[in-house]
Nucleic acid binder design. Structure first.
Lengths: 164, 164
DNA sequence: CTTGACCTTCCCATCGTTGGAAACCCCACA
DNA sequence: TGTGGGGTTTCCAACGATGGGAAGGTCAAG
């Protein structure tokens, strides 16, 4: 089948299928004489695997590892479990960071009367708030970046395949 | 003061200070005869504001809005509060997405014995799991992208200024 | 044979951030 | 006065995952 149908069946956009192939996450697709990529059920199966892993927050690199574990019939289930548990741990850290943001913001918002007057503890909190970096000892490098950095991200993607 | 000192005092890297200036988030800095940028206390104050907002997960664009609210003495505190509450809402959505991932992964991991044998419900869940996109109706476009997409992000950044 | 849907390979943009190169500036020390 | 080292300037590129679009080739139905 052509890439479009594989896309529809897997839920991975054609753009991403080509990208995954190009970066080596998935093997190069077979080609028709025309040059069109040709996919079979196994390919679609793999693409679905990739998409589900992606939906669970694994990076493409990690998915490479998962694909390896998938096709390695000699690997122990403990290996997979460790992989998953580590990922869960990372997800929890991310959640904790966001939760901390929410708490801070709620505290600020709670103290803001939210009426027509200009005085606003939220803005003042941002302007004068603690955590003054000059007064703060160097924070240890964080393994996976601030959650804040993750929030500034990309628009519309739940609409992956259908989106065009 | 030079950019380096402003960076140290604000917790914003020199790179980012220049970037914020270039993109218009902050006004162009004054210059010495030498061409070096020149910052005063007010500039540092603004940079700190930006950094705190960033740490709370606001995008640079949103921070532009916040800076406007900050300097607009005629705006109502209600405006700021609405801004904050909306952001909190977005943070909560993000958390909920990640939480859903965690739940799914935990369910899978719970069913994995995690020993030397190769059978692994985690891998099988990825390979065969429900949510088969072909069988699923088009999901509505999501306003802020899947949380999964946010997780593939950047290394080391808590070490912003100290990092070099 | 035309039309339109599909496919191909390109390159570009996004967002926030870092890295590096080549050049220039400043200050202290000899 | 020379020199060295550190700070600074601008510019260009990369990351990761994704979408957008152009310019052209292919295919199947009419």
């Amino acid at each position: 089948m052509n890439i479009g149908q594989a896309s529809r069946m897997s839920g991975v956009s054609t753009k991403m299928i080509r990208y995954y192939e190009q970066t080596g996450l998935i093997p190069k697709a077979a080609r028709h004489d025309s040059g069109y990529r040709d996919y079979d059920e196994a390919d679609v199966h793999r693409l679905r695997f990739v998409r589900r892993a992606r939906d669970l927050g694994f990076t493409v690199e990690q998915i490479g590892g998962l694909l390896g574990l998938w096709s390695d019939r000699s690997r122990a289930s403990a290996d997979v479990k460790a992989f998953a548990l580590e990922h869960i741990e990372r997800l929890r850290e991310k959640m904790a960071e966001i939760e901390a943001m929410v708490r801070t913001l709620e505290t600020l918002a709670d103290h803001c009367h939210g009426d027509d007057r200009p005085d606003c503890p939220i803005i003042e909190g941002l302007a004068e708030g603690d955590g003054a970096p000059a007064a703060v000892e160097p924070r240890a490098p964080r393994r996976f970046g601030t959650a804040g950095e993750q929030l500034a991200r990309r628009p519309v993607a739940g609409s992956r395949v259908r989106g065009h």
